[in-house]
Structures are given as structure tokens and as C-alpha cells.
Design a protein around this nucleic acid. Structure first.
Lengths: 154, 154
DNA sequence: TGCGATTAAATCGTGTGCGATTTATATAGA
DNA sequence: TCTATATAAATCGCACACGATTTAATCGCA
């Protein structure tokens, strides 16, 4: 829960907890992204996956999972939906048949480029933050996430 | 997406985005909470609901939703699970039968007290942050969340 | 070579979130 | 009064997350 200050009189007690601010900000980001991504027919986690897949061809499900901090139980269905949408390719590695290699189709690559061309600017505007504040907050949250994952064992 | 810096060479491109840091920190908090809450038989959102319900007796589903930033489509099933677990009471308001009044049972109240007595301290330790840094980050995230909700229309 | 251990991905069940709709109740105005 | 409108909660379907397990393939080592 991680309290920040003694509970003020009338307010929401949850507002005192960092974990809740993170939780609520995550919900809020999703609500900003939803109408921006709906035209592309993808969800926010799917968008993250496409961006992660853009950086390198032939990544495995595990490699994608390291970038998203997710595992195959979450990623396999997500990636299959992207495959069904014609955005991603899934191929068993011929050297090691346990491994699935992921790639973007032309449509997937184009969608990622197009979305990255407009969506981030709109989200940036929605935050109402300047670049310096944004970078500082991002750095602090990245550190916090890494510390928590380390504590939790992943 | 909200970028913070030009994409560095080898790293994870997602790490440059504030939205992803928030998303990943949320996942990480959940992973820290899970083993701490499992002994009580509740989930993290259920824990938040119990804390919110502790602050006032007889809150409506809508009032709880304002505190958690959720609506009845999410809260009704969650609250029914807490009721089934014997932690929460649900009663139709006699003055206005549309409204459901929520309360904590003795068990629910005790669980909230007990959990608040130990869990936050452990989570605080897991963050590895001091009180000042924690409060600053909490404030920045609360502001960001409010700005994003305002932009999204809730 | 063979067989137990390890690894990668997939599968299954549960609990969120949420858009869209429905149900039930209350309110307002002609 | 009667009916249209508004409101509170519930319902439904879908897409995550994730613990636990399963399936399939590879590796290690005698």
C-alpha cells in the first residue's frame, strides 16, 4: 500500500498510497489510449507488443515477454489475436522446435509506424507535462518498477 | 505512448515511454502484493475496495467507484465476491431501491485493520524509497492521473 | 545411446476492466 | 395521473494478467 502521509480528514484514503496512484494512472492511461487505438482495431497491450516487435525481427515469445514483463500465458493468446488480425507472424524455429519466432507483417509494420506517428503526440498532450518533468517521472517509475520486480522475483 | 528520449541503441524501446513505465510499475506492484494478500484470500483490487469502504459506512456502489475510479460493471462482481467471502454487506436503500449500500462485516473490518497493520510496511520496504521521494512521486502521479482522467472524460 | 531434467510455449480457470446494453426505480412535466 | 426521462446497479461479452499445469522438444550425463 505504501503510505505517503497520515490520512487527511475528508479525502479519499487511497490517495495517500503510491501503489494506488500508479494503479489509477494506469487505468487513466488506458482510457486515453482506447479512443486513439480503436480506429486501428488494437488494444493498448497489443500496441505495446507491436512497438516491441518493431525493434527486432524474429524475436521469441520469451524475448517479447522480457520487454513487456509478461509471460507466455498472457502473450500466447495476445499474439495469436495479432496474428489473426494479420499484423504478426508466428513461426516455429527450425533449429529448436520449442521456440516460436515472431515477426511483423507489412500491415503490422505499417500500423506500428502510423500509430507511432500520431498517437504519442496526442498522449503527450493529454499528460499536460513538459519534457523535463516527463523524463524525470519516467526515470523514477522505471527505477521503482525494477526495484519492485527484483523484490517480487521477476 | 508519451516518449521521453530518442530511442537508445540496444535497449527496450518501450522504456522510453512514460505510459509503459506506469503500466509496468502497476504490474510489479501487483506481483509484490499478491503473496502478501494471498494469506487473507483477497486480491489487490479487493484490498483497495476494503480500504475505501473502511473510511465510511453505507457507501453506495457509485461512491466506491468514485474512490477507485471504477464503475458498476467492474465493482458489482467484485463486491459480490467480497460479500460471498463474508467481508462486505450489500443492502438496497429503503428510501431509493435503485441504490445499494455497502458496509464491512466484522470480519471485513478486522481483515482491513490487520492487513493495513502489516502489508503497507512490507510494500514500503519493497519500493526501496524514502518517505520524501515517495511523497513526491505519489503527488506527481496523482496529478498525472487527474489530468489524464480529465482528458479522457472521467 | 537412453533417460531424467530442463526449457519454451500453450492451455486452463479465475478475477479484473470496460463498452454496450438491460433492468428496476425514481423523477419531472404535460 | 400518466408517461418520458433520468439514474443506479446489474448483466454480458471480450481482452488482459496470472497461478498452475500440460505438451513438446532439447539437453545433460552416465
Amino acid at each position: 500500500m505504501t503510505e505517503t502521509a497520515p490520512n487527511a480528514s475528508g479525502g479519499n484514503p487511497l490517495d495517500q498510497f503510491l501503489c494506488f496512484s500508479v494503479y489509477a494512472a494506469g487505468l487513466a492511461f488506458n482510457r486515453v489510449y482506447k479512443p486513439l487505438l480503436d480506429p486501428y482495431g488494437i488494444t493498448y497491450p497489443q500496441y505495446l507488443a507491436l512497438v516491441a516487435l518493431s525493434s527486432k525481427e524474429g524475436q521469441t515469445v520469451s524475448e517479447l515477454g522480457e520487454k513487456l514483463h509478461l509471460e507466455s500465458n498472457t502473450l500466447t493468446p495476445l499474439v495469436k489475436r495479432l496474428e489473426a488480425a494479420g499484423l504478426v507472424t508466428r513461426t516455429r524455429d527450425t533449429q529448436d522446435e520449442r521456440v516460436v519466432r515472431l515477426g511483423l507483417t507489412v500491415a503490422g509494420s505499417n500500423l506500428a509506424k502510423t500509430a507511432l506517428g500520431c498517437v504519442p503526440a496526442e498522449v503527450l498532450a493529454a499528460t499536460g507535462m513538459d519534457q523535463a518533468a516527463l523524463e524525470e517521472l519516467n526515470g523514477n517509475l522505471a527505477t521503482l518498477g525494477a526495484t519492485l520486480r527484483d523484490f517480487a522475483g521477476r
